[in-house]
């Protein structure tokens, strides 16, 4: 049984479809992220699950109970859903402890229980503070503690880290994932940040055009995207045109082996070459392997553990991005030979 089950969910605002027949099954205890661009309907999906909006069509179940269908609607307060928004939305008139205790049954609003939750999120000594006296990261931790306090069946996180700065974001992300896993809380986190989506999740859903385009583990999503859209979503991607013959594809980067899932593909195609599948060799003065395409380095970015280089290929209006471990092997302006390693994924053009 899925903890959350969405089937054929559609929602439109003022005639514009935001969700269009969306299906999603979230297994019990899983941490699921839904990745999509702004306006792709991520937030709407969460709001439908929480019960703040009604879908136009479709059915939503939580823990096997139908909470929304054309015939049935369970209001938010009876869904036992924990909801954390981007801004935290702490109650400004209540202190931290009272915020956390808000959803607890009256009998349970004991300080011990609240204290336990605050310590869980690492804010054991801030119970008497008011929200405006907290930093952004602290506010999100309180919001999480508050969401967990009424023992929700599922926890929904709507871009919970996006208003924080980068360093804080990584630390909080780690903490939140740890806490949610420790409690085996079924979680849906929506984000537009692929790093966030991939690093936290057991399963990732890619949302686009009102549907889940692919729903899989982060690893298989990365290595086996169902289409170019998904491929471009996750990680960096070079898309090159080519002609396939069933087992290989001929491109400006040379003849590349097709990955198993892409076989047998024939005719005009578009191939996905990840930057780390490319390497560079200095090719000034006619050096370098014969037959490998050549180009000029136009840009470089150094990240410490590795570096990225952008190469304009000679004789083609194609630019490729290349990842190299360690120090950049070449300077901007140098001529290089680009060597590609298969197998690659490709789809009909």
């Amino acid at each position: 049984m899925s903890a959350i089950s969405c089937r054929g969910v559609s929602k439109s605002f003022g005639g514009a479809a935001v969700l269009d027949g969306l299906d999603l099954e979230v297994p019990e205890g899983a941490v699921v992220t839904v990745l999509g661009q702004s306006g792709s309907g991520k937030t709407t999906l969460l709001r439908l699950i929480a019960g703040f909006e009604r879908p136009g069509q479709g059915t939503i179940e939580i823990a096997g109970e139908v909470v929304d269908s054309p015939r049935r609607y369970v209001p938010p307060e009876r869904r036992r859903v924990g909801y954390v928004t981007q801004e935290g939305n702490l109650f400004p008139h209540l202190d931290v402890a009272k915020n956390v205790a808000f959803g607890m049954p009256r009998a349970q609003r004991s300080s011990a229980r609240v204290q336990e939750l605050l310590e869980l999120v690492g804010l054991g000594d801030l119970g008497k503070r008011y929200p405006h006296q907290l930093s952004g990261g602290q506010q999100q931790r309180v919001a999480l503690a508050r969401a967990l306090a009424h023992q929700p069946r599922v926890v929904l996180l709507d871009e919970p880290f996006s208003s924080l700065d980068a360093g804080l974001r990584a630390a909080l992300r780690y903490d939140v994932a740890r806490i949610l896993r420790a409690r085996r809380a079924t979680t849906v986190l929506v984000t537009h940040d692929q790093e966030e989506a991939l690093s936290v999740a057991d399963l990732v859903g890619i949302i686009s055009e009102g549907r889940i385009r692919q729903f899989a583990t982060p690893e298989s999503l990365y290595s086996q995207p169902v289409d170019l859209t998904v491929a471009q979503f996750l990680g960096e991607a070079n898309i090159v045109a080519g002609t396939a013959d069933g087992s290989t594809v001929e491109t400006v980067l040379g003849r590349l082996e097709l990955a198993g899932t892409s076989r047998p593909l024939k005719g005009p195609s578009r191939a996905l070459v990840r930057p780390e599948q490319l390497s560079l060799l200095a090719a000034g003065n006619g050096q370098g392997p014969a037959g490998a395409p050549r180009g000029r380095v136009t840009h470089r970015e150094f990240y410490g553990h590795d570096c990225a280089l952008v190469v304009d290929l000679d004789g083609a209006s194609q630019q490729v991005r290349v990842r190299c471990p360690g120090q950049p092997p070449v300077e901007v302006g140098e001529t290089v030979a680009v060597v590609a390693r298969g197998p690659v994924l490709a789809w009909p053009a």
């Binding site: 929480a50 703040f52 938010p76 307060e77 869904r79 909801y83 109650f91 508050r146 969401a147 009424h150």
Partner: peptide, 14 residues
């Protein structure tokens, strides 16, 4: 409205 929604998701009726 967001605060009201959060309140409802925490189990409070309208």
């Amino acid at each position: 409205v967001r605060l009201e929604e959060v309140g409802r998701s925490l189990g409070c009726g309208p």
